[in-house]
Design a protein around this nucleic acid. Structure first.
Lengths: 350, 350
DNA sequence: TTTCATTACTAAATCGTTTACGATACTATC
DNA sequence: GATAGTATCGTAAACGATTTAGTAATGAAA
């Protein structure tokens, strides 16, 4: 028999098995789900029949009855350039996906079809699909729709942004930036500039850590050594790098918002006829793959995306499966310094 | 009232609205779905109640009844390194996602939880979730499970691999490689080497196009100019590049499997103290973002991922919504040559 | 012999929708 | 005034599963 609307063959259901085996639907269900009040023999019979008839459970029916979908929603907005095509987030998503799937959960993108006839808010969409839990990773955290979602009663884990009373996995940007700055100082640099990314919780953490660490090392950072450039924007870092190089007292080391943006600086430095790291040292941030495949290898702070993603999935699923006993927590994931070759050891001026 | 298993509040259903408005559930359903046998007034009343009570449809119930999920499965296996963290595929997925969501479809990853207690084949999983359609993008196309899926009765679109009687969107690798080779020839190169990727339909298309185009330009390619290196593997391209440079009669131009792999060649060339493009010319393939942000800009063939992804989604959804009238087709998407700066104009030897 | 557990099974309700079909009332036509 | 047509709404079955409560049979304990 074929479905009228899709034209596809009808799938076999519990009813078919029950008719085939001469037992009730309830027994079939229980047998297949491993309940104990079914005899060994009927279990065998039913299992065999299920295989023969090509039975596959129906997630919609199961979800309708149990209120569990074993499907996780991921909010991953790829406006402009952050998102799927962003190495850091892509790696995060990949790791999250792996862990979730290993634990028996599927992944579906959350979206609000703005502009569509039946557009829904993120929350509407999440409720509509009945996600067991949600991961908010790459998004404008001040978007009202995101906040609405974060305030809902759906289990949620967030990455790199703290919401009140919600689970969160954060990359330790304070420690990361401190490691980076410490390394530069250890290499003898005292004139360190920082071109930081656009304002966000992440940026703030890195920026304050930058100031704190340099201060602790007895370094005073002149205002003109610190400026802003959008993440992953090479044009802006190019411009800011030129500005830094033009300074009467230019820095000996420049920190960039991220690895990709660092390429803007690399170009600016080369265009000036200078060489890295002989004439000037640079650092990226993130530790994307390409940094280890260029010469000289880019000095950077590698964020542990594998850990971040899998930990997020682990926490979220624990929260879903043990809502009472799981307490909301905040997990910090350390990155690791990748020394690379773009920071040269210099003799500090006396 | 709260759900016993999840502890979450119960969602309002059509029944609640029907009670609230004093009409039948059927009328509420019809009113909300825009059927014409409901009076304007009751529609208004029901719409208002739905808003007040915070009604949200339940996708599981809808799917159960209608056999339509408005959910698309994507097969996107990220073994080793191809997949989410692969620029080309990530861009593809992004574009596919955009188009699908704009047309009212969600995206869920297909996976077979191998090794898990309830592991399913790709097909089992797809049937279980009831996807309306499937996109197979980045995967081993000779995997028996993939073939089983491709033979099923589910609407499918494939990217870059032709299955019998299935829709497919392919990047024109023949034309792309021809454009690339032609450009190199136009720049005066006659000693062109090609380090191609591992065997696949894509590789074969590029390789045969490479031979055909060079032949047409009157160039004979010695066997030692052609060798293999895995895609996105810089170590292997490094090794092969060194080999090429050691040749008694080395090439003046080297073509790489992809942009990323080209970095292995770049390193090898620099390590030899040679410069690009003054001493040797190189080309990548794909047109990933970074190629336009390094100096010199990498000459490459930019694949139109935006078009590939959106076209795939468009075709698939058309097939889903008009199964009778839609004929299976094969769509070819042209890439575009990005000239960059890594191929130098030379005087061909006489 | 009666009583009580235990085992193996079933009936039926239920989850939230959609939809074929029937029912009613009103209007227009002859 | 009988008939047909139209507009509006309701009844009830169905989708495929889970689960509660209950039945029937068996054996053991009293």
């Amino acid at each position: 028999m074929a479905d009228r609307t899709t034209g596809r063959a009808k799938e076999t259901s519990l009813k078919d098995i029950s008719a085939y085996c001469g037992v009730s639907i309830a027994t079939v269900s229980k047998a297949l789900n491993g309940h104990k009040d079914v005899s060994e023999e009927t279990i065998r019979k039913i299992r065999k029949a299920a295989k023969e008839l090509g039975y596959r459970p129906n997630s919609a029916a199961k979800a309708l009855k149990t209120n569990r979908t074993y499907d996780l929603g991921i909010l991953f907005v790829d406006e402009a350039q952050s998102g799927l095509t962003h190495d850091y987030y892509a790696a995060l998503l990949d790791s999250f996906k792996r862990e979730a799937e290993a634990r028996g959960y599927d992944l579906t993108f959350i979206n609000s079809n703005r502009g569509e006839k039946n557009s829904m808010s993120y929350l509407d969409h999440a409720k509509y699909r009945g996600f067991d839990g949600i991961c908010i990773a790459c998004v404008d955290f001040y978007d009202p729709e995101v906040i609405e979602l974060a305030r809902s009663d759906i289990p949620i884990v967030t990455i790199d942004h703290v919401f009140n009373n919600r689970m969160v996995v954060i990359s330790d940007n304070v420690r990361g930036m401190a490691d980076l700055v410490d390394y530069c100082c250890d290499m003898g640099h005292r004139k360190i500039a920082y071109i930081h990314g656009a304002d966000s919780a992440v940026t703030q953490a890195r920026l304050s850590s930058f100031y704190k660490t340099t201060y602790e090392r007895g370094i005073t950072i002149p205002d003109e050594y610190v400026s802003e450039a959008a993440y992953r924007n090479t044009d802006e870092t190019y411009r800011e790098t030129i500005r830094l190089l033009n300074l009467p007292d230019p820095p000996t080391c420049i920190l960039y918002p991220d690895d990709f943006a660092a390429f803007g600086g690399i170009n600016a430095i080369h265009d000036r006829g200078l060489s890295i790291p002989d004439d000037i040292s640079i650092c990226g941030y993130d530790g994307i793959r390409i940094t280890r495949h260029i010469t000289p290898h880019l000095t950077t702070l590698r964020q542990d995306t594998k850990q971040l993603g899998s930990k997020a999935a682990e926490l979220l699923i624990t929260l879903i499966e043990h809502p009472k006993t799981t307490l909301i927590q905040q997990v910090m994931v350390e990155g690791s310094l990748y020394k690379g070759e773009t920071v040269r050891r210099i003799q500090p001026e006396s």
